[in-house]
């Protein structure tokens, strides 16, 4: 699979990554190369093979419904770029 400039733009948008115009051909080449590597997978027929999501065949453990988290707003917001009145601030959200 060889990726074009428009593919890169589309994926970069999907992943919300600003990519310099000048860097696009480089990304197109690199990602195409990676996809060629990845497509070696097609050498093996996997029909009927159950997908494996996790190394262990284990079940989800359940947590009791008890409140143990206290308010730590100031502590947890110490790394926030912009905060006011306890809210994280972002450019206007338009719906």
């Amino acid at each position: 699979m060889s990726l074009e400039k428009t593919d890169i733009e589309k994926i970069a948008h999907l992943a919300r990554l600003a990519i310099d115009e000048a860097a696009i051909p480089g990304y197109a080449e690199d990602l195409s190369g990676i996809l060629s590597l990845v497509e070696e997978m097609n050498a093996v027929d996997t029909d009927g093979v159950e997908p494996l999501a996790h190394p262990h065949d284990a079940d989800q453990r359940l947590r009791d419904d008890l409140v143990t988290e206290e308010n730590q707003r100031e502590h947890l917001q110490q790394n926030a770029p912009q905060v006011d009145a306890g809210l994280f601030l972002v450019p206007k959200v338009i719906e």
């Binding site: 006011d84 809210l87 994280f88 450019p91």
Partner: peptide, 14 residues
């Protein structure tokens, strides 16, 4: 997202 004006920005309450 709270749309009242916070310095021209939106406030996020999680």
């Amino acid at each position: 997202s709270l749309h009242e004006d916070y310095h021209g920005m939106s406030g996020i309450d999680l």
